[in-house]
């Protein structure tokens, strides 16, 4: 196991280096002078020269690459052109907001995806199966930004159930607002603020969960269909186990393995939807940070967020592989 794990961890190094190379090259593929592109046509020569200096554009290519790599490995992703703050620091202050959103999205996705997947496998071609099919098709086909706006129209503007945007009501002033608001306040017993945070998180989390929950329901349906007809389920029935016991400890346990794999692989994809969702809901996470950086041509920030998303993607698929090898020892061979 340890041997497989170390092998697998070391195997991502070449891919990681190539990812870094791509992210590094991003600013260099801008047609013409990147400094001019960033500053616009009205910039003076000294401004352009200053920016070129700051982006290390005057050095030879390989030297630029070397200094970029050594920077990344020592935790330096450059400074934001807009705020002059280190990109890594700004990313880390915004990451909890996005993670909190992702955790709620995952919970909502499981809450809907698992029962729908199980029921539609148990009762194929029934009404619930058809409903699941329609919902999961809409979930993977609906554009996230539009779904976000539709939920705002229905649940905030018309019904008034949830706030339209932000993380907390403006009246609530809390220091360190970029932390895990809901979880912090739950732990410190500040339930009214936590409840306010939950009300804010539900709509954006639902938007992210639509795609994720749909994926879970589809894969669970097909893996459950296979498991239900397997020999060990017939044996369990023959032993006279209760249907609930069979469902939980025989069917679900086996059917969930491929679903967990897919969830791990699709996690980063779901997270990248936060660029659209956070923009619509004014959610102060890394997705909105990236959007703002794009419109301000803040390239170090664009590079940093891109790298972060790629890292999350690689790490989640690494975790999936490792977990899978624990669950299914044949993989290690």
């Amino acid at each position: 196991m340890i041997k497989y794990a170390t092998q697998r961890i070391f195997s991502i190094i070449p891919a990681l280096l190539l990812v870094l190379l791509i992210v590094f090259s991003l600013v260099r593929v801008i047609p013409g002078d990147p400094a001019v592109a960033i500053l616009g046509a009205g910039a003076t020569d000294s401004q352009i020269e200053f920016l070129r200096e700051q982006l290390n554009l005057n050095d030879p290519f390989l030297k630029q690459l070397a200094s970029y790599l050594s920077g990344v490995f020592s935790g330096d992703l450059g400074d934001s052109l807009r705020t002059r703050q280190p990109v890594l620091k700004e990313l880390l202050t915004r990451l909890p907001a996005t993670l909190e959103l992702a955790i709620f999205a995952t919970l909502i996705a499981i809450l809907f995806g698992v029962p729908l997947g199980v029921l539609s496998a148990k009762y194929p071609n029934s009404l619930i199966d058809q409903i699941t099919r329609v919902f999961s098709l809409i979930g993977v086909s609906a554009p996230a930004f539009w779904l976000a706006i539709i939920l705002q129209i229905i649940f905030s503007l018309r019904l008034g159930w949830f706030p339209i945007s932000g993380r907390l009501d403006a009246a609530i002033r809390q220091s360190g607002s970029s932390n895990f608001i809901v979880f912090n306040n739950l732990f410190t017993g500040n339930f009214s603020v936590a409840w306010n945070g939950i009300r804010h998180v539900i709509l954006p989390a639902t938007v992210l969960a639509a795609f994720y929950g749909a994926t879970i329901a589809r894969f669970l349906r097909s893996s459950m269909t296979e498991v239900i007809h397997s020999d060990f389920v017939r044996t369990a029935k023959g032993k006279g186990l209760s249907p609930l016991r069979i469902l939980i400890s025989h069917e679900l346990r086996n059917a969930l393995i491929p679903v967990v794999t897919i969830m791990g692989l699709k996690f980063a994809e779901m997270l990248s939807g936060s660029i659209l969702t956070e923009t619509v809901f004014a959610w102060p996470g890394i997705g909105r940070y990236m959007f703002e950086a794009i419109s301000m041509r803040d390239y170090p920030v664009v590079q940093g967020t891109t790298l972060l998303f790629a890292l999350i993607y690689m790490i989640s698929s690494l975790i999936v592989d490792l977990v899978y090898s624990v669950l299914d020892p044949r993989i290690r061979l």
Partner: peptide, 24 residues
């Protein structure tokens, strides 16, 4: 295939947004 894998290591939406942003 190493190059293909590296490109596939980015979530597709992030990669498309980044390239579009950088190219203009």
């Amino acid at each position: 295939m190493r190059i293909v894998d590296a490109i596939l290591s980015f979530p597709t939406l992030v990669l498309a947004i980044t390239f579009a942003a950088v190219l203009g």
